[in-house]
Design a protein around this nucleic acid. Structure first.
Lengths: 199, 199
DNA sequence: ATGCAAACTTACAGTCACTGCAATTATTAG
DNA sequence: CTAATAATTGCAGTGACTGTAAGTTTGCAT
């Protein structure tokens, strides 16, 4: 099913890739803000109007598959065994997805670099994360048998997101020399232990 | 000095207030997205161009003094005694500012309601929070004698922000019946204790 | 008071992201 | 081959935001 071999599907996938590839190139050379959708369209040999059939906003070209990754974490979480504590389950879900952080390190770094330099992409990324946070809070609440989201589930979901974000920034700031999943694990560890004892 | 009694200053303050007041009314009746800057300008009896001399974006009308509040937290933090642990200092800084959450409860609720219904205001709010998070991480890093931001400072800053956000959302979702500062305190408490023991 | 400088407001023209619509072209299924 | 379906495109429009230059108001020194 992921190998829908129709001509139509294939063309669409190719066009989408072409847009992404060209857009990234332009973003990296000219900067995100200085690259117009028209320029991307020209480079990808489509009309400007068509661009918006593929991506809802210019920002989403950078973040599309980042969003997919977030969705996968939620899926993982929903499938964790009930006996696990919520934080445990959260960490495990994360780590499953974080594993392929390593195989796509370069793409990841490119994305982050573009994001780091353009406020609007950052904003969109935060928005995605926030939606994700909400979804996680929902799953965690259900897990603990509640109808409505409780404070602790919200907090935990947010904390997990922060673990991810702090890791990302640190990873970027230190020149990507460290293993990203290891950073994530350390963050989860600190949050598990709590800040009360830190002096 | 806050009572600059020149005519010029007074007029500016009045205009700014008038924009805010009218804009809020329009946002609440018609919705943020359905309110154009032109309409706000008309209601506030200024030209559309002038609007942008007062607020950089439409979103900032809703969030301007929220940003101020965030700045004050950072100021507080910078002034905390060195003997305090970082998390302690962070909580204390928060609580100082959170105190007047209570006196401005209505304004706060209005702001949150507008925000909750309009993605772009949410996005802008997240952006502000993210900038704030970075500033806090910076102060915390200095505090622990580092030149560059370390992972733990970043994480702690993020966690504090999440404490704030989770509290806000919970407060809104439960109909503002609970004391907001109390929620914040509970969140800080949970993060101090850590999630490791939760089952 | 008066006149000059600085600050504030405004009109105008322009850029750019994004949308709805309707016409055109390409792909598919029968 | 043909009819239905999906993708692409052009076009006209909206709305946020910016630079610029000209007009208006306020502050201040004389």
């Amino acid at each position: 099913m992921s190998t829908e071999t129709g001509l139509r599907e294939r063309k669409k996938r190719e066009t989408r890739r072409r847009i992404e590839r060209k857009a990234f190139e332009l973003f990296e050379t000219a900067g995100f803000e200085n690259t117009t959708v028209e320029a991307i369209a020209r480079a990808a040999e489509i009309s400007p109007r068509t661009f918006f059939h593929y991506f809802p906003t210019k920002e989403d070209v950078v973040l599309a598959d980042y969003a997919d990754r977030l969705d996968r974490i939620v899926e993982q979480l929903a499938g964790r065994p009930e006996v696990e504590g919520p934080w445990e389950a959260l960490e495990a879900s994360f780590m499953v997805v974080a594993t392929d952080y390593d195989t796509e390190r370069d793409l990841l770094a490119r994305r982050f670099r573009i994001m780091a330099r353009s406020p609007s992409v950052q904003a969109r990324s935060l928005q995605l994360q926030s939606g994700w946070e909400d979804a996680v809070a929902e799953v965690l609440s259900r897990r603990s048998g509640r109808e409505e989201q409780d404070l602790e589930s919200r907090l935990m979901a947010g904390a997990a997101m922060i673990a991810m974000r702090a890791s990302q920034r640190h990873w970027l700031a230190t020149g990507q020399e460290v293993h990203l999943p290891a950073l994530v694990r350390r963050c989860f560890g600190m949050l598990a232990g709590g800040f009360g004892s830190v002096h």
